[in-house]
Amino acid sequence: MLATILIAGTLFGMMLLILWNGYRNVELSRLDAGERERPAAQAADPVAKRCVLCNAPLASSATRDEVVHELQRRIDVERAWVVDFLDRPAPEVFARYLYQGDPSGSQWLRH
């Protein structure tokens, strides 16, 4: 009886060991595959452009060149706004329009 219990216990223990070892091998092979694929994926898309869960655009999705392009576009817009009016004598209300975007100052432009 005791021998039977010992044999059954040993067999059960061996079965658990085999299962754990198999699970560990599967996890290691998945990790290796991930490590092999990651550099290629990063090279193809250095910064993820969309959230992987909801596909929403990410705030930091842009590449460096895209950031520079957007900065230059904003500078062009700002400069065009400012340069248009710089050489004119202007009352204080115009200064509010120029510096603060106060629309009441825009009435000056019609004079």
């Binding site: 700002e78 340069v83 120029l98």
Partner: peptide, 16 residues
């Protein structure tokens, strides 16, 4: 003078 005025306007707008 134009460059200075332009830079001042851009700076003040950014501050604002």
């Amino acid at each position: 003078g134009s460059r200075l005025h332009e830079a001042q306007a851009l700076w003040v707008r950014e501050l604002q």
